[in-house]
């Protein structure tokens, strides 16, 4: 599996624009960050690519089983620079997920490193498999 992802050449992929349900109050492009989601017995891990977002500018919100990720990118260029060739836009990253019942919403952990946001969503104790002991006697 690991070889499969590493051997091929990376393809050009432009950013995906959001055509979301709710419109933004501020003008500017909004992008959907690409995510990986994987699950093991302890919880769910979510990784999202948000290049250019500083840890202070990321906003993670859990409300009524909806997880909202939002990240702001500040303009990269200084005022004295003129554009020669612009291939990518910057703006807001925004994406929502519905959380399953089994996630312990109090214990969600987030980390932003090198433009990749990693969220660890642990499963609630009630959702973990429990062994029931049989008492003898």
């Amino acid at each position: 599996m690991a070889n499969e992802t590493q051997s091929r050449d990376m393809q050009v992929r432009g950013k995906q624009d959001v055509s979301g349900a709710a419109e933004q109050t501020r003008p500017g492009p909004v992008f959907t960050p690409p995510v990986d989601i994987c699950e093991d017995e302890n919880g769910i891990k979510l990784m999202a690519d948000m290049p250019g977002v500083k840890p202070d500018d990321v906003n993670i919100d859990v409300r009524e089983n909806t997880l909202t990720l939002a990240g702001k990118v500040k303009p990269f260029e200084g005022a004295e620079e003129t554009d020669l060739m612009i291939e990518y836009d910057i703006g807001l990253y925004y994406r929502q997920f519905t959380l399953p019942e089994l996630v312990d919403q109090e214990k969600i952990d987030a980390q932003l490193k090198d433009g990749v946001l990693t969220l660890v969503l642990p499963k609630a104790e009630a959702a973990k498999p429990k062994k029931i002991e049989i008492k003898s006697g």
């Binding site: 051997s7 990376m10 992929r13 990986d36 989601i37 699950e39 990784m47």
Partner: peptide, 11 residues
């Protein structure tokens, strides 16, 4: 782990 989504590309 079981992967539900794989949208990030590597290479």
């Amino acid at each position: 782990a079981t992967y539900h989504r794989r949208e990030r590309s590597a290479g």
